[in-house]
């Protein structure tokens, strides 16, 4: 996080400021979390924003994960952003600017999220993991299948309403051990 880059970014943010209540960057609300900027697009503008970020030099998605906000009343969302149960968190990095940026998109349960595969092929495994762990379906993903759990597993373990507890051993295609 070089200071210069952050300064430039803040200037940009001020230039594009449109709504009086919330600060905007690339047309979406922006917040600051521990030196990293966080963008809050809505689901419809998600792909356009990522395409724009790619143009801006954020060449790598380093991480994509989902958070299940079922039991957490959030206070850190900008005023114009309505919270939904699931949030897709995308961390991007620009090597040239030496800068990170984070995108947080809200998605209700059962809503399909557009896949980032065509923009960033590296998100393939991350989106599969998000699907496996949270059941978030990414539309237009080349291989939307489980990645960590067995293919025939039922449930999505990292959801907040999924029990952590111990489960008996499951055998695939073997006679029961009695």
């Amino acid at each position: 996080m070089s200071d210069d880059a952050t300064d430039v970014a803040v200037d940009e943010a001020e230039d594009t400021e449109a709504a009086p209540s919330v600060e905007l960057l690339y047309g979406v609300p922006v917040a600051e979390a521990f030196g990293q900027r966080v963008l809050f697009p809505d689901l419809d503008g998600y792909i356009e924003l990522l395409a724009e970020l790619r143009e801006q030099g954020f060449g790598q998605v380093v991480d994509l994960c989902v958070v299940d906000y079922l039991q957490h009343e959030r206070t850190d969302l900008p005023a114009t952003v309505g919270g939904e149960r699931f949030e897709i968190v995308v961390n991007l990095i620009s090597h040239a600017r030496r800068e990170r940026i984070r995108v947080r998109v809200q998605a209700a349960d059962g809503v399909e999220v557009p896949s980032l595969f065509d923009l960033y092929p590296g998100t393939e495994a991350m989106e599969r993991e998000a699907f496996d762990m949270f059941g978030t379906v990414f539309s237009d993903h080349p291989d939307m299948s489980r990645i960590l759990m067995p293919e025939e597993w039922s449930g999505h373990p990292l959801r907040k309403d999924y029990e952590i507890g111990r489960i008996p051993v499951q055998f695939k295609g073997a006679p029961s051990q009695g």
């Binding site: 960590l148 759990m149 067995p150 597993w153 489960i167 051993v169 499951q170 055998f171 295609g173 073997a174």
Partner: peptide, 9 residues
């Protein structure tokens, strides 16, 4: 893991 147990067996 649950996924590895059948392989182990």
């Amino acid at each position: 893991s649950q996924k590895m147990a059948p392989v182990l067996r």
